[in-house]
Design a protein around this nucleic acid. Structure first.
Lengths: 281, 281
DNA sequence: CGCTGGGTTGATCGGTGTCAATTCGTGTGG
DNA sequence: CCACACGAATTGACACCGATCAACCCAGCG
């Protein structure tokens, strides 16, 4: 596996896709920093890896993905990538970092309704929905690639199988969200957190962001709380309970999994919903 | 609007689609009753109404939908329409009644993760996902129409716009689920219930199942509890609180909305996510 | 007329949110 | 090098929301 830093620096590539060298991401913790636009050719590998985990792509399909008119952009920690109520004319793909869909409630609270990692075609939803009913925000410094809706539409029309593969990602997102609903409604907080660790682990593994059972996950506890729908204080205490199981070490920006089976059992985690199997689609 | 009974009896049709006369649905409350297969030509109107609320369909597209090789089937209350872990080769469209996606947890609890009404292409998800990670169950007697995946695929390939419209329903389902996550995570139960009433009202209105601000919603409180992730007792008490607002009467099988604005304000309900506007897609 | 399933109520207890204070870690400026 | 500021993590105290258990009511039905 190629060496990858958190900022998306990619120094080698075994699969023949273009090589991208980016400057380091802008400093984190500065929501006011303007996002930078970057004209480098982007790295389609996370997306391709994610798709090929579900069905084979032909050389033409892989090339067609790379040949889309991507527009690269960077965002700092906590910056907004897509605004609520906006009408995007481009879809965005998360190349590197972690982002989330965020919904603001009238009482001032927010709930994060989806988590996205490298290779996620975050705004395929916007391709269908036209008006954003939520925002997409960066939870770490991220690199995002935008592509006009019309090009996605053309691609899907000219290459129906590839189109289905892209739309499949929407269906997988929906499956993930259904499992979140189940977690929120019927699981004790410790199981819910364990579930989140399991899911993120599996999703990062697909795109090569896991080494030796550990991965970066630099979210604050306030962000975790908004993900699982708990208060910050209770999130903190539940995290301590989770650490006490010994199944995982979750300290600072890094999560280490010591006992996958124990963690998966605690979380009642069944990866079927992630569709991690090859199948004609 | 044509007159429509809960069982799907349709006696007239302003839009020129075929007319269907079905026998009454099987008696409810009998989960053991076998589902019946029905060879009548089915009524595509709810689906077409649902799609045309989002973008215009051509005559050819409407006809192509009707000409799909639908296979009609009825299910009694609480029957399973699609089993967990099954590998369906057909997608199913809910023609009449109410159904839900159901996820079973290890502790014996269940959580309903989505609600479906007439016109919902319930198992477009299965078209992409191949293995069911959840079950689809009837919450009332329902009429379901099945169509082979290969025909959906052929249709989407030959008529790309129509294909996008069908896939859009998956994206809308996902948007609905994101709002459920926000409801579960950050809303008081009474607001959550109010939200559910608002959403069901809007969705039933699209397919002509609302008259004078009221509609049938024959779910037990146990089912409501599994929808919102509360205990039965607490669901009961919260329902009483909701009735006490006077915004809505929810008694037995029928919900009447007396004060939409009050209810929507209580629920912080913004229908943007339902995409109830015409737009080229 | 009793059975049954759904709805309702009361009592109790643990889980969870809230408020407030303290500690920790890191970057900044003197 | 130290003092300080700031955000994040942590801890304690306390109130209350919501789950659980156990009755009881009620309507439909055999």
């Amino acid at each position: 596996m190629s060496s990858i830093t958190q900022a998306g620096l990619k120094t080698e590539n075994a699969s023949g896709s273009r090589i991208l060298l980016l400057d380091p991401a802008p400093p984190s913790g500065n929501g006011a920093a303007g996002a930078s636009t970057d004209t480098h050719r982007f790295d389609a590998q996370p997306l391709i890896a994610s798709l090929e985990r579900r069905d084979a792509l032909s050389d033409e399909e892989r090339q067609a993905l790379r040949d889309l008119p991507w527009r690269l952009k960077r965002y700092g920690d906590s910056e907004e990538i897509v605004a609520e109520a906006s009408r995007p004319t481009e879809s965005c793909l998360l190349v590197d970092g972690i982002a989330a869909r965020s919904r603001h409630l009238a009482n001032g609270n927010r709930q994060l309704t989806a988590l996205h990692v490298s290779g996620d075609f975050v705004d395929m939803h916007g391709f269908f929905l036209k008006v954003m009913d939520h925002a997409v925000v960066a939870l770490t410094p991220v690199t995002v690639a935008f592509v006009p809706h019309r090009d996605v539409q053309r691609l899907a029309t000219e290459m129906p199988h590839l189109g289905r593969m892209l739309f499949m990602m929407v269906a997988i997102d929906a499956a993930i969200q259904r499992n979140w609903i189940a977690c929120m409604g019927r699981m004790e907080p410790i199981r819910h957190l364990a579930y989140m660790v399991c899911e993120v682990y599996k999703r990062l593994e697909i795109v090569g962001r896991v080494e030796n059972g550990s991965f970066d996950f630099p979210l604050t506890q306030a962000e975790i709380a908004d993900l699982v729908g708990l208060s910050i204080v209770h999130t903190n205490r539940t995290l301590q309970d989770l650490r006490a199981t010994g199944f995982t070490t979750w300290k600072g920006n890094r999560i280490v999994i010591h006992d996958w089976d124990g963690l998966a059992k605690l979380a009642d985690f069944d990866p079927t919903y992630l569709n991690l199997f090859h199948h004609p689609r």
